[in-house]
Amino acid sequence: MEIVVCVKPVPDPETRLRVGADGTSVDIEGVKFVLAGYDESAVEQALLLKEATPGSKVHVVSAGPAPRTEEVLRASLALGCDTATWVETPPAVSPDPVSAARALARAVAATPHDLVLCGKQAGDDEAGLVPAALAELLGIPDFSLVVDLRWDAAASRLRFQRSTETGLERWEVSPPCVIALQQAWNDPRTAKLPAILKSRKLPIAKVPPDAGAVPTGASRAAKFELPPPRTGAKMIEFKTPEEAAQKLVQLLKEEAKVFP
């Protein structure tokens, strides 16, 4: 089985966020970029599928600037991916999701693939658009909210479940397709030291970004803001417990926007 897994370098989840000099994006000075979150789970899932079906290969692909994209590809190779392809984009600029999907599609189209695995969303912009955009470009179906993914080699079919609000859907699909994995539900392995050393010497194929398709629309970052520092609680005034409850629920829904 040929598995392509798409990954994106993102700031280390433990990074203290700071606003960049021009106020439009996060400050990346000194920030470490890593393979994390759903992407890390996607690589793990690809490797598990490879181990379950002998003769399979995992090809990791990423679109982004140097050096972070190369580092994330090397980290994926150290975990056990067989080949790596890098679509290098201009420095210091993370491509927007649709451009990233276009760049990835070029690399994926050139690689044999029964399955294209993606994480549900990246840990920084959390757009969650690449899997479906990639599928649109490749002309294949995409499935989100996927848990429990298996390859039935005898039937040459993918079996998986989608964890939706109404319940668990069971699917059986002939390849190829794009699958976006749901919550990080597997336990990603840690690359061993010898593999880390070896990965530095492995080749990374490069595919130039497609200069052809110029987007007719663009999404531009205008402002990047951190929440204001805490200044003390807004105390809720009430005459009855019911009134306190109503006011709090209202505030959580409409002001804080955290009500489930």
């Binding site: 580092e71 090397r74 980290a75 840690t190 690359a191 880390i196 050393l197 530095r200």
Partner: peptide, 15 residues
């Protein structure tokens, strides 16, 4: 070097 950072990160994560 990036290799040294990878080694350090491996140990840091393990720790």
């Amino acid at each position: 070097t990036p290799e040294q950072e990878s080694l350090r990160d491996l140990a840091r994560k393990f720790a």
